[in-house]
Design a protein around this nucleic acid. Structure first.
Lengths: 124, 124, 124, 124
DNA sequence: GTGGTCTAGACCACG
DNA sequence: GTGGTCTAGACCACC
């Protein structure tokens, strides 16, 4: 389900949050899907259960999960996070683009990047 | 010259590196300008000299400064860093755009951001 | 594990880096071996932990170690450094040979040195 | 006569020693040539006279110069230094070759370097 | 216990 | 006065 990179400088719980967020945002995990239990995921990743617990709590605060006591953790519906996530990404992109411009990156170079990411091949 | 943000969770030396890098990349500090001495900047920021020393060493490794022992630290010429900085920014932008696409941001939204940043018709 | 040479004028952290680099490059420390902790090596060498910390950071930047925060430092796999190390050595050798030639050393003398080092007929 | 590299990490007096040594060893300065006075060289290099004085003293100790009080410093005859210099270089080369071999450099790669430095073009 | 950061001192070489 | 190194402490986050 997840592969941890132990060479990554970030704390493990943060990596777990990040990977799971991408799975949810990317649509790999649909709404109301049951997440693996804290303990089972901890075993799977060879990690302390506290670490997974912490990740789940963060994901819940971010609106990606909801918890039913005694039942487990479940993926929240898109309406809970889609809008705010897009806004957040747009803001981050804006700041990064500003920094890129400041560093001497041209508009053309960025358009190339944009094309590479959204390569048209799809509706042709 | 610099204002530290104590709410920022990043280490102080990293903040210093970041701010100075922006000043240099942004052109506020010209090549061969003498930087404040390690000790004086430490006093100005109410910080330990070791912390500033560390920041200066990092900036030197990144190619933004050159050091003449016993004389001081000086801003390196653009040729030392311009190219690599642009490459680094392009790579970062690529990754951010990928994440943005993943999160559901449309190409149109990003084009708007791009235009806002590189607005060529300020009062047209 | 390491013996410091107090007559050596180089800074301690550099000596530590040098010795450990040789141990790794020479194959005495295999990939993924756990290095002694910063504090324990500091005690062993009767040196301040900061000094060891600095050495480990340098070795990490050079690709010889990888760090897992809260777990320790580990020897990186050969692929991380073998190529660049060979390139570096070749460049250094080139410069040294130039200086040797300049000083009047003949090609024959150098061929003798080369044979001595790579003596392929130990007991032939 | 000499060009200093202010970005060089080594102390200036050491750079001066090194450059002058090469000029003498390389044959650019013949035996009994009068060296520029301490003060004039200091002015030429925009450097403190003490620095040049220190360099001259070192060169004298190394056998490259001799001093005649009130007259100046002169280049010593080859017999004073040629032999020891060659020995020193051979020793240094030996150590470097050992380290190169240890790092995984092959004999063939070193032979290539050797050929590049002593390119045959001369007696062909 | 581990690495990461920081402080408050100190000494040295260099110019 | 400048950078470079080092010590002896301390606190923090992570696991």
């Amino acid at each position: 389900m997840i592969i941890l990179d132990y060479r990554d400088k970030r704390p493990i719980y943060e990596q777990v949050v990040d990977k799971l967020e991408r799975l949810i945002v990317g649509g790999a995990l649909e709404a109301d899907t049951k997440m693996p239990s804290v303990r089972s995921l901890a075993v799977e990743l060879s990690v302390n259960p506290n670490t997974i617990q912490r990740a789940y709590v963060m994901l819940e605060q971010m609106g990606y999960l909801y918890t039913i006591s005694g039942r487990g953790n479940f993926v929240a519906p898109e309406s809970e996070w889609r809008g705010s996530k897009v806004q957040e990404m747009l803001k981050e992109c804006h700041e990064m683009l500003l920094r890129a411009k400041e560093a001497g990156v041209t508009k053309e170079q960025l358009l190339v990047q944009l094309s590479k990411v959204y390569e048209e091949a799809e509706h042709d």
